[in-house]
Design a protein around this nucleic acid. Sequence first.
RNA 1: GGGCCUAUAGCUCAGUUGGUUAGAGCGCACGCCUGAUAAGCGUGAGGUCGGUAGUUCGACUCUACUUAGGCCCA
Length: 1085
Amino acid sequence: MFKPVQKNVNFPALEENILKFWEEKQIFQKTSEQRSECPEFVFYDGPPGTNGRPHIGHMMQSALKDLWPRYKIMNGFHVIRKAGWDTHGLPIELTAERELKLSSKRDILTFGEDKYIDYCRSTVFRYKESWEKAIRRIGRFLDMEHPYLTLSNDYIQSDWYLLKLAWNRKLEPDRIELQGKSVSPRFLYKDYRIMPYCARCGTTLSNFEVAEGYKDVIDMTLTAKFRVQGMENTFIAAWTTTAWTLLSNVALAVGPEVDYVAVKLQGDTEGAKAGQTIIMAAARLEAYKKQLEPYDLLWTRKGSELAGLEYFPLWDFQVNPQAHRVVSDDYVTTEDGTGIVHLALYGDDDFRIIRREGFPLVQNVAENGLCTQNAGQYAGRYFKDETLDIDVLKDLKQRDLLLAKEKHEHSYPFCYRCDAALMYFARPGWFLRTASYRPEMLRANAYINWQPNHIKEGRFGNWLENTIDWNVTRERYWGSPFPVWACADPDCPGEVCAGSLDELRQFAGSETDKILFNEKLGALDLHKPLIDRLKIPCPHCSKPMSRENFVLDSWFNAGLMFIGQWGYPATLGSKEIFARQYPCDFICEAIDQTRGWFYTLLATSTLFSMCNDFPEQDWSCYRNVICTDLVLDEEGRKMSKSRGNVIDPATLFEKFGADATRWSFYTTNPWNVRRFSAENVKDCVRDVLLPLWNSYSFFITYARVDNWTPNKTDLCQDHPLDRWLLGELTRCQREVSQALDQYDVAPASSACARFLDQLTNWYIRRSRRRFWKSEDDHDKQSAYATLYQVLTDFCLILAPFMPFVSEEIYQNLVTTVKPEAPESVHLAAWPKPALDKIDEELAATMEFARKIVRSGRDLRQKHSIKVRQPIAEVKAVISDGTFDGIKAMKDLILEELNAKKFTLLKDDKTLVQLIAKPNLKALGPHFKNEMNKVAEVIKAFSPDVVQQIADGLSVKKDGFDIQPDDVIIEQQAPTNCPISNSEGFTVALNLELSDDLVAEGLAREIVHCIQNLRREADLEVTDQIRIRISTDESAIINAIAAHNSWIRTETLAKDLSVATEPPNSSSKPIKIDQYSVYLTVEKAI
RNA sequence: GGGCCUAUAGCUCAGUUGGUUAGAGCGCACGCCUGAUAAGCGUGAGGUCGGUAGUUCGACUCUACUUAGGCCCA
């Protein structure tokens, strides 16, 4: 027999018990073991960093990441769910710097690299327990006992393996892009990039950090005159906001399509002398009126014609035969300045052009922010020293090389830590040739199913289109070590790249393991600083080589988890498991990962696949991806500690439970920004969990009363309600499967919600009597069998969504009575459709019946007739083919509307008239421009014509040939009748109340009162009672006389005594309608 | 400055290929019902789908522009 159901269900407490049950019985392990021979469904878990706490957005991720694996397992797949933690990266170093009060690389070196790195390592797992606790509590099945860690030696070797693939791969000759002569054709090459750099802290900054520190400032800008070689007294004018960069000028750039003019000054101005010729963009002349007018226009030329002009540098210390030439480039515009840009090695575009044109790499301001010894009289000055700008300005002015000066407001980045102005500085790094396999990444993207779809061609596609070579190294301390050693002799080309620890041992010799042994860890440690102590003899000149002092971009590190999580290929057994676990079927992360993990997975897996000759469809290591958006607070703001609007997942779990929290994330499209509040979760309890629980509790209550248990022979369900409900269950099962197969969660949850409504608000409500009636007949058996099957199957469908409550219900419904069944709902199979075929006609008819009932209730309410008062007749007029079906629903409708007679009519002129409406969808294609006219004609049809159309005849009218399909026939009720009409049907009630009907209504009132008294007296459902009624109201006495036995049956009364004298006791009369009645109920013994 | 997304009822959100009366839940109002239900149910009010223009017989849906917000990039 089923166990009784607790009345006051406490979901959070229930969930804690289920968690214990899962752990005791090792259900998670069994979901994997029991399916070890099944086909794989591959899931990759992106590694979160655990030096911060998990928040509500992560819980949404967990809810989604858990849903599909559970669903797939029930569908017969084997799913590995391996957790991963990201243990490298800048956030960790920033935490360490903050807590150790270090603000620069110099500080770090003073503090001690080894101590600093140890500290970083110590913060890595600071909140790992919080993560584990939250993930466990939300019911996510995830293997956190064997997580992959990006800092492990196995993982690092996967980094090295992939780098070595890139190292060995070389650009095909026909795909070599012009990148400067010194760069190697390897897919992994060393180069420079202009990085935001704080000279004071001695640190490059990430884009994110730069964005923190923009300020509007006023700077002195100046326009310098560069004397052209071979042209008499002629100067090119170029504008700059950073005077200090002029010290490193190597070239001037013009726009190839821009018009430039040469103007000869007629008189002296504050910037130039009579007779001098100045070259600038025609469009900029206006801005330099003061310095130029009056002038003679000598010529106009396109920028492309100016390219190649040579000029004298501003200072002698700059003289270099390779430099100081005009070049053209599309990035030059005429928006500000002179339309001519001075180039120095302190800007991205500058760097690109300088490299392309082969100009010398001049940096007369060094990385410490001081002018170098090459900078003549400026040597040793700080680049942002205000007097430096002034001195440069005076200097140029004095030598007649200054056209103009002006104060200019613009936004400039400052160091978010120390507030010093940043500079853009060429820094070395190692690059992956991602740009060279951009077409392959685009092809790989074509095989990815993105949810939402617009990411594929939009945000992600655009990013791929514009991808440039990826700087995979960082000049930092805590990270995956970069495994390239280069010869100390700058002229020697010797370098090696270690693709594994074994290879490193071969390079570095027998001392390797000894050097890499970390005493504190008691294990080999591949991180800095130990690895820097390895010296490898140069293969060319045998001098010692040193490691290129970089760590890997932590995105590169995380991106190759598809091999890293197995330590592929160095780790024992990794090749076998990798072969089964590549590519992956499903990943789910937030939208900020388009340029993060989504990209780095694709970039690394495409490279990996190309090197291993994988087929095109497997180049991307993921096939389906859900890209979620942010979870905001209820006012649409980001949640942050400082605002105090953070919702702690733990409080939701404690208050409402994990199932409700999970469900709240399944009801909307997760790729839209979501305003979230605890109210959402509360609603889920009320809308979904409680109705489900109540249905279950209803079933158990009666099954226990009748001692009912499932029995296979009872499955002959012919009651229309039973067949209908089984059909709706099948529909729900199909819709959920279909939606989940498309990685679309919202339709899946709404299918469940719809079914739940059908179950509680129609099936159970209309079937109550079938369960509590005393005859144990076929109808009752059928009701039990149906409700049992529906609850168990529905429970299985809900299991991936709400793993706790579904487990609880499953345990009682299934395992208590079927010992042979799987011991957990999560080890059970996804339910098969309850019916082979849904009876669509029955479904439509039932829907129709419900609509008729709604209209009927509407009418009762409008005429103030409460449902307890029976009425004589319900009339319905329907016009379409469900006529016979509706007739079969007669009893349902009568019971629900409490009426005596149901009359169904095909048409009734007194109740309805037919009206014609144009069927636009049909008319549009036929009549096009004339459709509006035809529509008017149809609306104006006379009743005869409407009838003709209704009878299926075509009509010629006003020159139009109108077919029955062109018209929609609807019913319209005459006004002033107790009638309600809606699409396709009309309902009318006969509200005249005979004396009998009034008496019956009173009897129902009496029963209602008695039932309330039963409940107040805390009687059991099955308890028998005695009723005593005292009243002198003849209406009541008559009603009781007429319905005596019915009242007793309804209330399980052994006897019912009626007296006309009020009882002696002090009891008060109660009101039944307008009548006073003394009523007592006591338990019969 | 560029790319992408979002805008639908008081609130949170659905809305399949352009088609007649744009849906749900919450909230609100009114009412009903109660021998499954810390309840439940029904009905109603409430939106012309951010704005403008266009394409079309017809636009929440397609196009362009625009406003506001968001994310990413520069």
